[in-house]
């Protein structure tokens, strides 16, 4: 009972100081728990660390045993850490990364398959920005077309935006996140904003046109699999109709490659049968030199 009312206060992100002023003052008090499953490989772990470094309002926790990564334990963990949402990086078979994003305790939660991962450590990504400065978020317009995209947009907004006046945040804006839906996947990019300016805090005239962006990283691409009503569980609200799991893909590829030997043997026997059924005519010149 105790944890139902408490999160309502917190999760609403809306604290009404109504007694005196009667004006509801909105305060974002989001806290994100970032954790991963055991046996995650280094690349995905680095991605997780990168994300954590972008979100100063996040809390980290030790890896979760993958067998325990059922909803109940994770929910408990989130509650223990006083968080209102959670990002859980689940690595399977050392190669497939699934990302859970969940609002706790009442949901919703969503499971993504993560593709095309590039971490911040890669030297190609040359930008850099303040740690903890609040990002500008840009969403492509097709987020507003379908209910499940709308829900995902709200989820991303709440998780990725650093609360205003967070004690670890910095008062300037020097990077921008781009969330874009292309090919039914959500693509994430993080750019540094460079504006040439002479005065310390004011932009030059026409500075907006001279603005350039440099990519900072990380990059990843999220393929939504399922959206659940609860936190790490509950009724399924949405299922990606186009989704095939990477296991299925691999087995398909294996099947395509398999049967090479069987095919060869078959071809041999077929040839033999063919030769038996159509014997060659005896060559009349065969014995010519044998006397």
């Amino acid at each position: 009972m105790g944890w139902k009312t408490k999160p309502q206060e917190e999760d609403g992100e809306e604290r009404e100081n109504g007694d005196a002023v009667h004006v509801p003052v909105f305060r974002n008090k989001e806290k994100v728990l970032i954790t991963c499953s055991r046996r995650i490989n280094f690349r995905y772990r680095h991605l997780m660390l990168n994300v954590a470094s972008l979100l100063p309002h996040s809390k980290r926790d030790s890896k979760v045993e993958s067998k325990e990564s059922k909803g109940a334990t994770l929910n408990e963990l989130v509650e223990l850490k006083n968080c209102s949402s959670c990002m859980f990086f689940e690595c399977r078979k050392h190669k497939d990364l699934y990302l859970w994003m969940a609002k706790s305790p009442d949901g919703p939660s969503v499971k993504f398959l993560v593709n095309a991962v590039h971490t911040m450590e890669e030297l190609k990504l040359t930008g850099n920005h303040l740690k903890g400065s609040r990002p500008l978020l840009t969403f492509s317009a097709n987020f507003d077309k379908e209910p499940h995209w709308m829900l995902l947009k709200e989820l991303m907004l709440q998780i990725f935006q650093i609360p205003k006046d967070h004690r670890k945040s910095k008062p300037f804006h020097d990077h921008v996140f781009a969330f874009s839906i292309v090919d039914d996947h959500i693509w994430f990019r993080n750019y540094q904003i460079t504006v040439p300016h002479n005065e310390p805090t004011k932009m030059d005239r026409g500075g907006l046109d001279k603005m350039t962006l440099t990519e900072v990283g990380p990059r990843f691409c999220l393929n939504p699999i399922k959206i659940f009503g609860g936190s790490f569980g509950g009724p399924t609200l949405y299922e990606n109709p186009f989704y095939i799991s990477p296991n299925q893909i691999r087995s398909l590829q294996k099947k395509k490659k398999a049967g090479k030997y069987v095919k060869k043997v078959k071809a041999k026997t077929r040839r033999k049968m063919h030769e038996l059924s159509n014997p060659m005519e005896r060559d009349e010149l065969a014995d010519m030199w044998k006397e």
């Binding site: 809306e14 909105f26 974002n28 969403f139 209910p147 709308m150 829900l151 709200e154 935006q161 009503g229």
Partner: peptide, 24 residues
């Protein structure tokens, strides 16, 4: 989905400074 969205989404009158989000 829409019900969940209305459940979790920030109030409409929340200032833009909280979200800093732009739709392009």
């Amino acid at each position: 989905l829409l019900e969940k969205l209305s459940e979790i989404s920030w109030p409409k009158d929340a200032d833009w400074i909280h979200s800093l989000s732009v739709v392009i």
